[in-house]
């Protein structure tokens, strides 16, 4: 991106303007996410930086909103913080229950989406696959069809077959929503996959199963894991289907946030938001490491 030596002064000026514009756009992208982090430590119940916060006075900061995440919904939040208190948190605190639900639903949805999605991606990337394009289009469509339409359809269908208000119903729905991501990432990995490796394994006497687990699998693993991460995040972030088909027992984190945002956006919402941002950062790191590993395995130049 360095300027060529023959650049005119006008071009130079434009070049620096361009860099400033880019910096502003990056700021636009990242600032909203960063701004909520300090605000979640606000000692006051407001969404602006108090003077104490700006002066970096420790009194302006507090963990009270994080504490609220634990105490909200408890039977006896003011009891002394002993084992009974923590058991109360574990069983009754709304956000803790929501987190448990999110993890359970996310885990099973990811499992289904990843297993079925990876198998299908293996089939789809074989050159002899019939109706490849059409089938691919159908399998990707859950990502494209507006979520409100999916949720509406599921509401009627689940009511008819008795899956509404059940964990299974939400898990199946979230698995469906996560599948396109698994297909996309795994097929992308398989594009660079050398099919002659499979043939070599077969000619050396390996059964197809053994070939899959010992040759194919390790090579496409980074793609599978990043697909699984996408599927998990999709489930972890999904609120509309939960709004339409879940019962109160299946309240998830986004569902709880939805309530909180509409009723009272107290900084508690910012506290949970900050935790979610931290989780995204962790996931992103894992993904980046996987990408590097994948590039190394496939002999591409490291980034």
């Amino acid at each position: 991106m360095a300027l060529p030596i023959y650049a005119s002064p006008l071009e130079r000026a434009w070049h620096y303007t361009y860099l400033v514009i880019c910096a502003l756009i990056f700021l636009f992208l990242i600032a909203p996410i960063l701004i909520i982090i300090p605000l979640s430590f606000n000692a006051e119940a407001y969404f602006t930086f108090s003077e104490k916060m700006l002066r970096l006075d420790p009194e302006g900061y507090s963990l009270r909103w994080y504490d609220r995440l634990l105490t909200f919904g408890m039977v006896a939040p003011d009891a002394p913080r002993d084992a009974a208190w923590w058991s109360d948190v574990w069983h009754n605190a709304s956000w803790v229950r929501a987190a448990k639900n999110s993890l359970i639903i996310g885990f099973f949805a990811t499992l289904i989406a990843t297993v079925l999605g990876t198998l299908a991606a293996l089939g789809l990337s074989r050159p002899e696959m019939p109706f490849r394009r059409t089938i691919m289009a159908i399998l990707i469509s859950p990502m494209i069809v507006p979520i409100i339409i999916t949720a509406t359809g599921l509401f009627f269908f689940y009511s008819m077959v008795g899956l509404a208000h059940s964990y299974v119903g939400i898990i199946l729905a979230h698995a469906t929503l996560g599948i396109p991501f698994v297909i996309i990432t795994v097929t992308a990995t398989l594009v660079g996959f050398d099919q002659s490796l499979n043939r070599a394994a077969a000619s050396l006497g390996a059964s197809p199963t053994r070939t899959f687990f010992q040759v194919t699998m390790p090579l496409i693993m980074p793609g599978v894991i990043s697909g699984a991460l996408f599927a998990f995040v999709t489930s972890f972030d999904e609120v509309v289907v939960v709004l339409f088909v879940a019962a109160p027992e299946q309240q998830t984190i986004p569902r709880q946030m939805w309530n909180g945002i509409r009723e009272q956006i107290s900084p508690t919402i910012l506290a949970i938001a900050t935790i979610l941002v931290a989780i995204s950062v962790a996931l992103l790191t894992v993904l980046e490491l996987l990408r590097r590993r994948s590039e190394r395995l496939r002999g591409l130049s490291p980034g």
Partner: peptide, 29 residues
């Protein structure tokens, strides 16, 4: 295994509901 796990989950859900619960919907706040 997964089917087993999910059906266990469902059973747990039903068992909890059977012990005597009431779902009351109101206006919040």
């Amino acid at each position: 295994r997964m089917l087993f796990l999910t059906s266990t989950l469902m059973c747990v859900g039903f068992a909890a509901a059977a012990q005597g619960e009431l779902n009351i919907v109101s206006w919040g706040g």
